[in-house]
Simulated assay, not measured.
Amino acid sequence: MAHILPPAMLGILGGGQLGRMFAMAARSMGYRVTVLDPDVQSPAGSVADRHIRAAYDDEGALEDLASGCAAVTTEFENVPADSLRFLESRTRVSPSSACVAIAQDRILEKRYIAGAGLAVAPFLAVDAPQDLAGDLAPLLPGILKTARFGYDGKGQVRVATPEDVHGAFEALGCRPCVLEKRLDLETEISVIVARTSAELVRTFPVAENRHEAGILDVSIVPARVTPDIAARACEMACALAEAMDYIGVLAVEFFVLEEGGLVINEIAPRPHNSGHHTLDACAVSQFGQQVRTLCGLPPADTRLLSPVVMVNLLGDIWRDDEPAWDLVLSEPAAVLHLYGKASARAGRKMGHFNVLAETVDAALEKAEALKRALRR
């Protein structure tokens, strides 16, 4: 694959915070950036060289993006796969439309991961009510999840009985779903893979993740798991990227079971919230890797330079005024990242901060104290 070098123009579909951090990484490396996003107040658009304000399926806008960019990527998986296919016929695109299509649909995703010989939680694809006619007991208690457009806990219902499942399926509009068995977990972890080719692959250190109401709250790096579990998670993430012939940055989320088992929960074909610590604590950020893999360059060194804890900042803490940022900015070990969003609302990701320390326990203690102070 030929290298794309600065000052080439790179394109990105999506103008949220992930697009913003991609644009900032690309511009720091000497590239120019065009963002396609319909929002006039797009966080990424405000830092890009050019902002095309149009829908993601606007062929004229896509033609404009393709003609002006040496390569195009995406910041989220729910961009229309047809738009990526349109772009692929005109310019370099990574990740591919085929890879994004897998991640857009939980049924396809589960089947693909299992077909690659990698462990997933027991599941049942539910396309229609008749799919629930069999014995559901082996999958209960479980979680019924919509196959498409579910993230941050949305489109998910916990179920304990067959009656619960039928009721949840109706409540979710009888849309295609996955019924997944709930497992006894020790913890949740994630691995970020950067892959340019079969020979050029790197993983970031494993992150340990805590969630609140289905939304990532805290990531702890390095994860407090055994070296064997960390090594197996990285091997499984790379094996999946290889099976998909994936080019780009891929996030793979895992459940660590109480007896030490490891199953893949889901994937994201892009940088991930649990990789935001890389902005301050690694030799390269996940966004720098996104630029490099898009441009056909080898992934850079992913060394962890310091133990780190990342804390998500949601719109809930805004209340009537800006939060007390001096609490974070006065702490020498903390680094604040705000996403430039025009308005805050409950559950909306508005920023994050990273806390670096000599040990992961010290970083976690300081991060938790700052989190409590901001949420008062």
Rank of each mutant, 00 (worst) to 15 (best):
P7C: 10
G11V: 03
G11L: 03
L18M: 06
F22T: 01
G30P: 08
Y31R: 03
V33L: 08
A44C: 04
D49C: 14
R50C: 13
I52R: 07
D58C: 15
V72H: 15
T73W: 10
T73V: 06
F86T: 08
S89E: 13
R90S: 10
V93S: 04
S96N: 09
V100M: 13
A101K: 15
A103R: 07
D105Y: 12
L108H: 14
E109K: 04
I113G: 02
A116W: 03
G117V: 02
L118K: 02
V120I: 05
A121C: 03
A125S: 15
Q130Y: 15
D131H: 10
L132M: 10
L132R: 12
L139T: 10
L140K: 07
D152V: 09
K154D: 04
R158N: 03
E163P: 03
A171R: 11
G173I: 13
C174K: 14
R175E: 14
C177K: 08
R182I: 12
R182G: 07
L183E: 05
E186M: 07
A194D: 05
A194R: 02
E199D: 11
E199T: 11
T203D: 01
P205M: 14
A207S: 09
R210Y: 01
V218T: 07
V218K: 02
S219T: 00
I220Q: 00
P222F: 02
A223H: 01
R224T: 02
T226M: 09
A230E: 01
A230M: 02
A231R: 06
E235H: 05
D245F: 12
D245K: 10
D245L: 11
I247S: 15
A251P: 02
V252C: 06
F255T: 05
E259I: 09
G261A: 10
V263E: 15
A268Q: 05
N273V: 02
Q286W: 15
G288Q: 15
R292C: 04
C295G: 10
L297C: 06
L297P: 06
S306T: 01
P307Q: 04
V308R: 00
N312G: 00
P323K: 09
D326S: 09
A334T: 01
H337L: 08
H337C: 04
G340N: 08
A346T: 13
A346E: 14
K349F: 04
M350R: 05
M350S: 08
G351F: 08
L356S: 12
A357Y: 06
D361Y: 10
D361W: 11
A367L: 00
L370D: 05
K371M: 13
